[in-house]
Structure formats: C-alpha cells, structure tokens
Design a protein around this nucleic acid. Sequence first.
RNA 1: GCGAGAGUGGCGGAAUAGGCAGACGCGCAAGAUUUAGGAUCUUGUGGGGAACCGUGAGGGUUCGAGUCCCUCCUCUCGCACCA
Length: 869
Amino acid sequence: MKYDPQIIEARWQAYWAKHGTFNVEDNPSQPKYYCLEMFPYPSGRIHMGHVRNYTIGDVLARFHRMNGFNVLHPMGWDAFGLPAENTAIEQNIHPVEWTQTNITSMRTQLKRIGLSYDWTREIATCNPSYYKWNQWIFLKMYQRGLAYKKRSPVNWCESCKTVLANEQVINNLCWRCSSEVFPKELDQWFFKITAYAEELLSSCDSLTGWPQRVLAMQRHWIGKSEGIEVDFKVVDASPNLQPIRIFTTRPDTIFGATFISVAPESPLVDLLIKGKNNEQEIREFVTRISRQDRSTRTETSSEKEGLFTGCYAKNPLTGDAIPIWIANFVLYEYGTGAIMAVPAHDQRDFEFAQQYKLPIRLVIQNPSGTLDPDNLTEAYTQEEGYLVNSNNFSTLPVKEGKSRITRWIEEKEHGTKIIHYRLRDWGVSRQRYWGTPIPMIICKNCGLLPVPEQDLPVVLPLDVPFTGKGGSPLEDIAEFSHITCPNCGNQATRESDTMDTFVDSSWYFLRYTSPHQQDLPVNPTASDRWMAVDQYIGGIEHAVLHLLYARFFTKVLRDLGLITVSEPFANLLTQGMVCKETYHCPKHGFILPSDATDTHHCTHCASTVSVGRIEKMSKSKKNIIDPEALISRYGADTARLFSLFAAPPEKDLEWSDDGVEGAARFLNRVWRLVSEYSEVLKSLDPNFVQDMVNEMPQASRNLRRQVHHRICKVTQDIKREFQFNTAISAIMELVNILYAFGFPITTTIKKNSKTLGVMKEAINALIMLLSPFTPHIAEEMWAALGNDSHVLHSSWPQYDPTLLQEEPLTIILQVNGKTRGKLEGISHDWTKEQVVEKARKEPKMDSWLQGKTTRKVIYVEHRLVNFVI
RNA sequence: GCGAGAGUGGCGGAAUAGGCAGACGCGCAAGAUUUAGGAUCUUGUGGGGAACCGUGAGGGUUCGAGUCCCUCCUCUCGCACCA
C-alpha cells in the first residue's frame, strides 16, 4: 500500500481529538514537565515560523511523555491587539468577530500539524474570563503602589494612534509598524517595574537554562550603574534656583569637570536663561534640537552642538566657577538630565570642549605617566592610573580616589551615592479599544478610585463605532464611560485607556495550570505543581519585551502570595528564523516563490525574475511558503521532519524545496521498509529476541548492535542541546542499515525466526524513535505491525550498554600524528600492549616504522596508537 | 564603539572530552529496473596525475588542532552620545 499522509494523518488526528489523548491529568507519582511555546497572535493564518516553533515543542512534549513524565503542553491565543482594531476600521468587521474567526481557523491549522496540545486548557486573552484577572492583578498592584498614574512625556506612534512603552520603540521607530515615534505629554498608567530592577538583574544569574545572549540583553536593558549624585551650586543664582544635580560614575574625575552640560529638554534651561539677553537665541536652539528626530540626534557620530547659558556653577571640589552649557547629546531621560563635563576623561565632553574651546583639565594620569596635559588628542577614559591635579587626592590610584572622593562628597553633603538603572517604569496605558479596560474610576469629588473587586470584570462594550480618528474609542461610549462613583454616589467616569497587550502575555503561562479557576487568576496548588515552565520556546524578538515583563509579573504575583516561584521559565530556547531567497519581478515587484517558474520567469508576465538574497520569510518580501499548501501536498509529518532536520533549532533555517522532497522521500522509504515486513512480523512475539541473544548469527548480532547504538544516539541528541537534526540523521542511518540488511526481504530471512526477531526489535525501535518527530506515520506503522497499544503510550526504547561494549573497534594508527593505517575489529578488552603489538605487525606500518627508533608511543584507549619517531 | 554568535565540499549541515574532517540530507554522476519518463534500488561523489593538500588568514601550544591560546579579516544579530 502506498504511503498516503492525508488519509493517515486525518485518521490519527481524529483519534487523538476523540479520545482527548493529550489532556493532562495531574499525576503526582510522575515527574512533571511543563512544555510551552509562545502563544500566537491570531492573525488568521499559521506561518512557517509557527510550524517550526510548535514542532520543536511538540517533539519535546512527546519525548518526555514517552519517558514517563506528566507533561503539560497547552496552547492559546494572544488575542488582544491592534490588527483586529485596524481591520475593524478598514473593513468594518468587529474585532470580536474577526478574532474569533481567526482563532477558529488557526486552531484547525494547528490541529492539522498534529501537535499534542491539551485543548481543554485553551485560553484567549480577549475573553472576559481571562482579562478579568488582568484587572484583578492591576488592582492588587494599585493597592501596593505598583500601578500609578502620572503625566509624562510618552512615545506616541501616530500611525498606531497610541502610546508605546520604551521597550517597544526600536531606533525611534514603532516596534510594530516601523513608523516614527514622537514625544507627547499624556496622563498615563505605569507599572513600577523599577521596584524590581535589582531582583530582575541579580536573578539573571540563576537562569542557567537561558541563552547567554538573552541574559546579556536583559542585563543591558536593566542597565545598572553605580555612581554618585553631586550638587553644583549655581553662582549668583536667584534664591529659588536649586543647585544643578548631576550623576556620575566617575567621582574620581570631578576635579576635571570644567563645565556643566544640560539637556535641552531640561526644565533647568528655562530657569537659567530667563531674562538673559540671548534668551531668544537659546530658545530657538532648544526648539531646533528637540525637533530633531532622535535617531540622528543620538548617533555617536553626529556633531556635538551646544550653547552657553551665561550662567556659572561652582565645582564643589575645585571651587572654580565653571560655565553651564546646553548640549545636544545630553539625554533628559537618563540620570538627572545634566552632567558634569570632564573633557580629559570623557570622549563626548572632549569633542564638545574642542569644538567650543573649553578648558581641558587632566586629572587622571595613565600608569606609565605618558599623558601630556597640554596635548591630548582624545579623552583618557580607562580606569587605570592615578589622580593628578586633585589637591590632596593626587597620587591616589583611580579606584581609591573614587572611594575617597565619594566619602568626602558625602561628608560635606555635596551629594550622595546612588544606583541608577536604565530601566524605567512600564507605561501600560493605550488609547485603543481592543484591550483590557483599566479598572479605574475618576470622580470629581473622590479623585481616582479603583473599581471594587466584586464589580470585575469591567467588560469591553461591544457596540462601539470604529472611526480611526484617534484617541480612545471607549471615551465616547456613554454607557461605558458614565458611572456612579462607588464612594460618593455622584456621576463619575471610567478610565478609558486599555492595557498594553504585553500585560496579557505576562502571566498566561500561570493561567494554563488552572485555566478554569473561578476565584483567582491561578490556583496556588496547580501552579506549585506545574511551575516553573521546564522548557519555553519562542523567538529571539521577545528577548527583552515579553520575557522581562513575564519575569516581573511572576515576582509581583509571588509577592502577592499567589505563587511560590520567582522565575517563570527555567529553560529557554530561542529558535532561529525561517528564511528563504526572495523573488523580484520588474513589473510586479516581490512575488511569491510559487509565482516564479523553475527558469525564473514571472508566471504573470513572463519577465525574468531576479533572485534576491536569503532572508527571513515575510509578507512584505513575499518569500513565504504557506504551511497549509505544504501540508496538503506532503503531509504534516514531512513538514515537521524537514523543519527539524534542516538546521539545529536555535539557528536560522534556510528553506529548501529539494530538502522537503528529501524528507518526504525518507518517510516513503521507511514506509516501504515497514510494509515489506509488517505481515511476517505481525505474529512474532516481540520479546522473542531477548531469549536468543546468545545463539543468533553474527550478522543479526551486528544488526542488533547497530540498532542499540542508534537508540543511544537519538536519545542523547534530543536530551542534550535539542540536536534534532543529528537525531534524525541517526534514524536515517538506521534505515540505511536495515535496507542493506534485508530489503527487499529474502526467503532466507523469512525462514529464520531469529533474524526476524531482531528485525522486529529493530523496526519497533525505529518507529518509536521516529514518533516524536513524525507521530502520524509512526502510529500507522505501529498499528500495521499488529500492536494494540499506541506508540505515544509506549516507553521510549532503552539501549543495552553491554551491546555497545561489544562493538568492534577501529584503532587509528598514526606516525608522528599523521594517519598511516588502521586496525579493524579490535574488541573493547584489549590492553595497550596487545594493541601496540598488533599495530607494529601491521604490514602497512612497516614502511613507516622500519629502521626508525620509536621515541614514544601514544595510546588513546579505544581510539588510536601514535608512534613518535 | 560595546556585547553575543558564526566562518568547514557545489549547497543545508556533522564531528562527546584535543584523536579517521566532511556523518545525514540535497545536488550531481554511473549502473539496475522500466516501452519511455517519473518513482525505486545499488554504487560513487572535498581538491590533486601523484607524493600530498585541505575547516576565513597568520602565528603558537601539543605526539596530534575544525576544536585550546594570541593577532587579524569577514559576516550576522543585539545595543549604542547611558554620564
């Protein structure tokens, strides 16, 4: 019978669905394994990146099930977000309807891949039963001062008509739509993630199962820097003018501060220049700089620009009056928005000083003493050397100078030690409809009030006009907006902002452990049982955003007493992107691969198509392969096999149509082999082979050894580093071996029950090894062999170590490290003397060794003999 | 500039712990089968006539280096005037 994946896969998928095969029952006698892939946004269609991501997870889930783990493997929908709302505006389809339709079709697509999810735990974040708990968590955070509202400049994306968190602004562009982001002043809700900055940073060390680069990105994002804040008094200031506070990590260089630079946006500017005769000029400068887009302004190479304010400040260490400048490169958002400028020891200050002819004062001499204070060509920024020009601190090494000056500053109350973080609070307000309503009430009498817990959820109203004019659509819905104040009973209004959708994904992994819990977001017992996630799998693009927020929420919920874990994800695998070359038609622009002929002509206009470089599959470049088309042509097993075999999971995968053909060919090859043997093996007792290990012919014995060798290899490759590609190649080797041994089947084999016994063991092992990767064909072949049970309920095959010990060894013979021959068929128990003796007698070695004195013999057990002559 | 990673056949990629470089697959070639094609099966396939040479380049350590150390080059990703 021909291998027909469509029929086979439909059969098993129906079976799994009918029997709820993958529904998890908590079984405390088994060790738990929580396997989680990042849930998708329901855009409508699965793409190849999803297939790869979920297949990796599915292999791990199935592998652990067969290895006796109680496996939790859930799936759900990150269902709030802008695309739904934009579709509503453009096509007049309600986000609820659009989202539900998309979920339905994507669920079907996922099921078509044969993924082993417990669908009874499915969640969609847009359901009130889910987002109610976003609101509940918000209220708890509000109570604890972890959620607060403040007016602040925010990142505004004009195209998305909403605010973005700092993490969501990439190179001054919106992370989603890549249009430019502008600053805007708005009242905003924030989560106080900075309260957890230190823990988020320090517990990075405990995340040993995370890729180093993700941890590096997290650490950098948090950006801890230890330093000191120092006040510089303004000379001749009006009494209400506060000193200028600066932040520095180099107190050892304060003696070298020859001017002050203030950020153009700083409110200080206004106070300093008021009434000055060049006030107008400065204002124009400030306006011009703040209009510049940030990406050009914050380039290291961009020109240093500044203006003198006309004011002076007193350097607390030198007592000198130093000029106060406004400088384009000083960031208002970082530190105090003002810096002391030490041109001798900071490259930016150096360039600035050169440009405006400001004094440069060397205060750190390098260890060899070669720095010439009058002829510096660049700043000396290393923290090695000793202090000079620093009064009684001179001659101190940098490190000591730092601590002594810090102490002096603190004693004289000029400043205090402080730790600064780059991380800032998470702005969660969004002026959009399709998200979780923030459960707050604004009352003219009582001010800001939380919605009483018993009134949750605050449900999103469905009858809303989608105009796309900007601003929050909820604001205009009287039935939603108008409310009686729970405190004073007067008319009040609801908060019309909704939450950033990253809130939804910050705790969904907890909800999966008890998705139907009524009174709490998560059942503490369930979360104790299942958390932390043993393996989390997703794209590197979430290295900062989602993963940082999820870690933050986990710590908050722990401190609320709801859960006991401190970190949500014990192990993280960031899979590579799926890539393919692009096709470009001179008339039609980028075209789909299927619209280019084999000879590179456009199917629409017959123009010659140019083939572009290999890059990430994307809609805009149209270099995409539709999983559904792929599966309907080759079946899910082939799609799975190829995406696992073509590259190791963490590396980018280069799509290859020929490679897919190869995967399909391999499954056909397996199918033919098993079909050839299924009838004769059906009646054979599977334990038969165990009884006659010692009396089997050499060839069968060798075969057994090969089989067990591959079981060992596949098992280790999956466990160690998720080397699915090499695991699959070991299975391919096994198939090649079985073909060489007995395909097609001969009458000799048919008549020899011992050989058949070995073959049955081999084919059983083959099917089981294959089953996590290509589950449908595995089940089908398993059944064809007459098994009543299912592969997925079988135990993962065990290898017999004594068999591996029996494997005849090949010893490499070297002379001076160069391979000159080999000894075959050496057994494991040979001693060094025996092996060397035999090596000397090897005819091939004669010409190399004859007449030479062997100075040394290197023997590596089971591997090689090296004669040093 | 800083941080992380990577450079191996025509291609995707293998190579525990420093020990046969190129597993497995693709592609290609030859043969078998077939009316033919496709499919399938078998064999071969780093370079070189050879001795030999070959893992981005150059040094080093070692009996022995794709693997370890140093210098450099190229590429990818992330961050970037962070005081």
